[in-house]
Amino acid sequence: MSGEIPFRNPGWAGNTGEFDLTEDQVRGRDYAGARPLEGGHPAGAAGYPYMLAEKHPEAPLFEGPYKERFEKLKSRYPDLRAALLPTLNLAQEVRGYISPETMDEVAALLDLSPAYVRGVVTFYTMYNKRPVGRYLVQVCTNISCNLCGAEDVLNAFLRYTDTELGETSADGNFTVIEAECLAGCGFPTCVQINSEYYENLTAQDVPDLLEALKARAGGAGAAAGAEAQTEAEED
């Protein structure tokens, strides 16, 4: 894959540089593998990223493997309403954000009223109410990260992407937002970019990381290649 990410022990124990696991081992990718789009076993069918680099705002809800996954999600609950969050997650995975039209379609799929679905969508911060860039960069500025310079990291992301908070960069690559604690407090600053965590980030790391992500996005087969967890790598 093009675009080497500056890998600094993401995910555990700080940047001691002493340990000998690969990035895939730390992230668990070597074990979880390239998970099939149709979700594998129904019990685990929710265990997916639902923020992908390439999204299609007009994509159907749902077809092919996504349809299978939708059916599996529904099968796990005693009533249909409980499938609402996973279904919205799936819709966001395909379309990148939850538009009012998407809410209506999801409501129809689950036999709920559109107003009810709107009420639920607006309650949860992870549902993008507007389109976002290829990479949604969420910088934690909560207390533990804040104590260790998170605000500098956030500002560096804004400076190098030349955006304001929540705005998408001119090339469509980046939307930077502030996040609440991501549960990586021992490894500050903790940043989530689409479905991956980057930890121990400093303001100095930001330009390289952004370049690497851009290279990924622009690399061969950008449409499928970006998110290793779901796509591409099985061959």
């Binding site: 668990g28 998970r35 076993h41 685990g44 929710a46 997650n89 549960a183």
Partner: peptide, 25 residues
């Protein structure tokens, strides 16, 4: 799982699948 735990829940999903295959669930 909190929605941000993509990596962790992918690992957990795989483990649950294995547990089903092994007759543990």
């Amino acid at each position: 799982c909190r929605g941000e735990f993509f990596e962790a829940s992918a690992v957990l999903a795989r483990a649950i699948e294995e547990a089903y295959e092994a007759g543990l669930c």
